[in-house]
Amino acid sequence: KELVLVLYDYQEKSPREVTVKKGDILTLLNSTNKDAWKVEVDDRQGFIPAAYLKKL
């Protein structure tokens, strides 16, 4: 599985998104959309803007 590093805090703005903190390391589920990547956070799945993430 692929991991990503969170570069900036992000507060979810819709039910399809998830809230993350800078420095979190998350499982990347889908990065086919260049604008928003799907990740898993504490058994929740949701989207975060790709600009907030860096592949490890």
Rank of each mutant, 00 (worst) to 15 (best):
K1G: 10
K1S: 10
K1E: 09
K1H: 13
K1F: 12
E2F: 11
E2D: 12
E2K: 10
E2R: 13
L3H: 09
L3I: 07
L3S: 06
L3M: 11
L3N: 04
L3G: 02
L3C: 14
V4Q: 00
V4S: 01
V4N: 00
V4R: 00
L5Y: 09
L5H: 02
L5F: 07
L5V: 10
L5W: 05
L5K: 05
L5S: 03
V6P: 02
V6R: 00
V6E: 00
V6D: 01
V6G: 00
V6H: 00
V6M: 02
L7A: 02
L7P: 00
L7Y: 03
L7V: 06
L7E: 02
Y8T: 08
Y8K: 13
Y8E: 13
Y8I: 09
Y8Q: 14
D9R: 01
D9P: 04
D9A: 05
D9W: 04
D9I: 03
D9Y: 05
Y10Q: 01
Y10F: 07
Y10M: 01
Y10C: 03
Q11R: 10
Q11E: 13
Q11L: 12
Q11P: 05
Q11C: 12
Q11N: 13
E12K: 14
E12R: 13
E12D: 06
K13A: 10
K13T: 13
K13G: 08
K13M: 11
K13Y: 05
K13H: 08
S14I: 05
S14M: 07
S14A: 09
S14N: 14
P15T: 09
P15V: 09
P15Y: 07
P15G: 11
P15A: 12
P15E: 12
P15N: 10
R16I: 13
R16W: 15
E17R: 06
E17L: 05
E17H: 09
E17V: 05
E17A: 08
V18G: 02
V18I: 15
V18F: 14
V18T: 04
T19L: 04
T19D: 04
T19F: 05
T19R: 06
T19C: 06
T19A: 05
T19G: 05
V20M: 02
V20F: 06
V20G: 03
V20R: 00
V20C: 08
V20Y: 08
V20E: 02
V20K: 00
K21C: 11
K21R: 13
K21S: 09
K21H: 11
K21Y: 09
K22P: 02
K22S: 08
K22R: 13
G23C: 09
G23K: 01
D24G: 04
D24M: 15
I25C: 06
I25F: 04
I25N: 00
L26T: 01
L26M: 04
L26C: 14
L26A: 07
T27A: 08
L28D: 00
L28Q: 01
L28E: 01
L28H: 01
L28M: 03
L28V: 06
L28R: 00
L28A: 02
L29P: 00
L29T: 04
L29M: 06
L29R: 02
L29D: 00
L29V: 11
L29G: 01
N30D: 15
N30K: 06
N30R: 05
N30I: 08
S31F: 06
S31P: 04
S31R: 05
S31T: 09
S31D: 15
S31W: 09
T32G: 10
T32N: 13
T32E: 14
T32R: 10
T32K: 11
T32C: 14
N33E: 11
N33C: 13
N33A: 10
N33W: 09
K34T: 11
K34A: 13
K34Y: 10
K34I: 11
K34H: 11
D35G: 10
D35L: 13
D35M: 12
D35R: 11
A36D: 09
A36W: 15
A36L: 15
A36G: 09
A36M: 15
W37Q: 00
W37P: 00
W37L: 02
K38P: 00
K38I: 15
K38M: 15
K38D: 04
K38S: 08
V39R: 00
V39D: 00
V39G: 00
V39L: 02
E40A: 12
E40V: 11
E40R: 10
V41K: 14
V41T: 13
D42P: 06
D42H: 12
D42R: 12
D42L: 11
D42C: 11
D43R: 09
D43K: 11
D43W: 06
D43H: 11
D43Y: 08
D43I: 06
D43L: 09
R44L: 06
R44F: 09
R44C: 07
R44S: 06
R44Q: 07
Q45H: 09
Q45I: 14
Q45A: 11
Q45E: 12
Q45Y: 08
Q45G: 05
G46E: 09
G46H: 12
G46R: 05
G46S: 06
F47L: 07
F47P: 01
F47G: 02
F47E: 07
F47T: 08
F47N: 04
F47R: 03
I48H: 02
I48K: 00
I48P: 03
I48V: 15
I48S: 02
I48W: 02
P49H: 04
P49T: 04
P49I: 06
P49R: 03
P49Y: 05
P49K: 05
A50P: 14
A50K: 09
A50T: 09
A50I: 08
A50S: 14
A51N: 13
A51E: 14
A51D: 14
A51S: 14
A51C: 15
Y52V: 13
Y52K: 06
Y52Q: 05
Y52L: 11
Y52R: 05
K54C: 15
K54W: 08
K54S: 10
K54I: 12
K54D: 08
K54A: 11
K54Y: 10
K55C: 11
K55S: 07
K55R: 12
L56A: 03
L56G: 01
